[in-house]
Write a protein that binds this DNA or RNA. Sequence first.
DNA 1: TCAATATATATCGACACCGAGGTATGCTCA
DNA 2: TGAGCATACCTCGGTGTCGATATATATTGA
Lengths: 179, 179
Amino acid sequence: MLELAILGFLSDHPLHGYELRKRVAALMGHVRPVADGTLYPAIKRLAAAGWVTRKDEPGAAAAPRRVLYLTEDGRAELERRLREPADLDISDENRWFTLLAFLRHLDEPGAQAAVLRRRLTFLEEPTSFFYDGERPMAAEEFADPFRQGLLVIAQATSQAELTWLRNTIADLESTPAAG
Amino acid sequence: MLELAILGFLSDHPLHGYELRKRVAALMGHVRPVADGTLYPAIKRLAAAGWVTRKDEPGAAAAPRRVLYLTEDGRAELERRLREPADLDISDENRWFTLLAFLRHLDEPGAQAAVLRRRLTFLEEPTSFFYDGERPMAAEEFADPFRQGLLVIAQATSQAELTWLRNTIADLESTPAAG
DNA sequence: TCAATATATATCGACACCGAGGTATGCTCA
DNA sequence: TGAGCATACCTCGGTGTCGATATATATTGA
C-alpha cells in the first residue's frame, strides 16, 4: 500500500523523501500515520528493485535532498499493481482508497472499469459481522447500540460507494476506448 | 486489534481456537482474513500474559480442543483497552470497528460516551486527501473521477457515522449512570 | 549568541503478521 | 480398506511496520 502510494506520487512528479512523506501523510496519514522508519526502507526497496532512481540535489532550505524519479520499469510496475490488484487491495478500505487515488494512471477505461467491478462484486456480496449459529444477524436484533451502529454505518458506507461505483462504471464503459 | 477481538469474544463465552477463528473471520475476515499463523501466536501471547487460560477437552468431531477462558486479569485488560484506546484505534476503520463491536463490555455509559467523543472529534477535524501546495482541494476540482469518488465516498461515510455518533452520545449521556 | 524549529535523511531492534507447511483425529462414502 | 474432507492445533522463516535514535543544515526570534 505504501509502495503503491510512492510509485503513484512519483508518477506525477519527481519528489524528494521529505515532500513524499508529506503527501503520503496527507493521503492516509490522518487514518494511519507513516513513520520515517517505514518510508525510507520502502524507498530503498523500490530503488533496489530498479523502480526508482535517486539523484542528489542541494537542499532548498537545509540538508541536501535525494530526489526520487520513477523509472520506466517503475511505471510498468505501477501499472501492473493497478491493473491486477491483490484481493486484499480490493477488500481493505485503506488499500482500496490508495488504489483509487492512483487509478487514473491506468489509461484504459476498460481496465479501470474492470478494477471497479471487482470492488463492486466484493461490496455486493452479502456479509454480516455477527452470526447466531449459521444465521446472519440484522442490526435490529441487537440490544447493543454499538453493534447496531456498526451495521448501520457499514451499510450506509457501502450504499454510497455502490452508487458511485455503478455510475462510474457506466461512464467508463460508455467511453470509447482510448487510442 | 486481533487481541482485542479475542478478549472481546471470550468475554461473551469460553471458546476453543477453531470456533474463535470463525468468529474473528466473520467480524473482520471479509475485509482482512486472519491466518492461523496470526491467531495461534496471538492466543499464546494472551495466555503468557495471564489474560486467558486453556483447558483441554475432547474434540466434538475430531482432534481434542483447547478451550480458552478469559481470566479476571483478562477482563480488566479488555476494559483497559476499551476505556483508553490508542489513537490508531480511533482513526483506523478496521480497529475502530473492532472496538465498537465490544464497547458494550465497558459498562459505564459515561466511559462509552467518552470513547465515542474521541471518534467524533477525529471525524470533525477537517482533513483533505490532496493538497495544491497548502490549500486543500475539493472533490469538484479534480478532473480525475477516481479521486472525486474517493472524496465523495469518504464524505458520505463520515456523514452517516457523525449522525449516529451524535445521536448515540446524546442517548448515553441522558442515561443515568449504571450502578 | 544561543535555543528552537523546520528541513532532510537514515538506521536499528523489536515485534506482529503472513503464508506455507506439518501433525493428528474422526466421519463419510466408495 | 482407503481416500477425502472437516475438524483442530501449531511452528517457522521472511518481511513490513513502528518507535526510538542519530546526524546535519538553515532560518527565526529572543
